[in-house]
Design a protein around this nucleic acid. Structure first.
Lengths: 112, 112
DNA sequence: ATCGACGGTATCCTTTTCGACACTATGTGC
DNA sequence: GCACATAGTGTCGAAAAGGATACCGTCGAT
């Protein structure tokens, strides 16, 4: 399983929670995914359209990891054509302030 | 140069600033370094002692990247033994709210 | 009969990241 | 003469992350 042993060993002491949080949202496109899901539930291809530079495989990966971390939920409808909805969980929603802080800082300090 | 082409192409549109910010603080130990420097200026080995799991080479790398991004300053004193001080720049200090948001979320949602 | 939409997998390959380890220079204290 | 502290640098290699491409099954519309 190619999960994220990124900061797996949380033996870092004081500032550790900082890294713990980063390890959850630090994946290459996770910030973006979470940001878009803050608008509400989206289907797989709706996300794809919003993130044109992400390959299908990467998007699937990131979504799976976010799901494994309990930040988003994945709801499958037994239909044809298939339909899968992605939405923030309660835990994911609690990241709102963090994501917004990142966004605001980025907007104000766009420096070259 | 092995810098951070991480989110180099900032062609992501709406949530882009989120990724932009993450690309600056998303390095493996950058969050920690910034967090500790919020306490005030630190010398190289003082940082090392606070981050026991970081190899010297990695610490140097992260510091160099943070400096290149204008988040920290590096002051060399022509002494022997050598002395180098690291401190947050104005720009680095402006990250305070972001770092604290990360830390607080991490503390509250430590979940297994 | 073929095409497209949907939500993926599977496979392969390249790039990036990270860690281990060794090595450097200089001056001081023993 | 030796070790120690300081703040690094260099090289190597493993592992992880990321990207490209091709493929799958089903249904409705053409």
């Amino acid at each position: 399983m190619p999960a994220k042993p990124r900061h797996a060993q949380m033996d870092c002491s004081p500032g550790c929670p900082v890294e713990a949080t980063l390890s959850l949202i630090g994946g290459k496109w996770k910030g973006l995914v979470l940001y878009h899901l803050m608008d509400g539930t989206l289907r797989f291809n709706e996300l794809r359209r919003r993130l044109p530079n992400v390959t299908q495989r990467m998007l699937t990966n990131q979504l799976r990891e976010l799901e494994a971390d309990g930040l988003i939920s994945r709801t499958i409808f037994a239909q044809v054509p298939p339909r899968v909805d992605y939405a923030l969980t309660e835990r994911g929603r609690s990241l709102r302030t963090v994501i917004l802080a990142l966004k605001e800082w980025g907007e104000e300090h766009a420096a070259a």
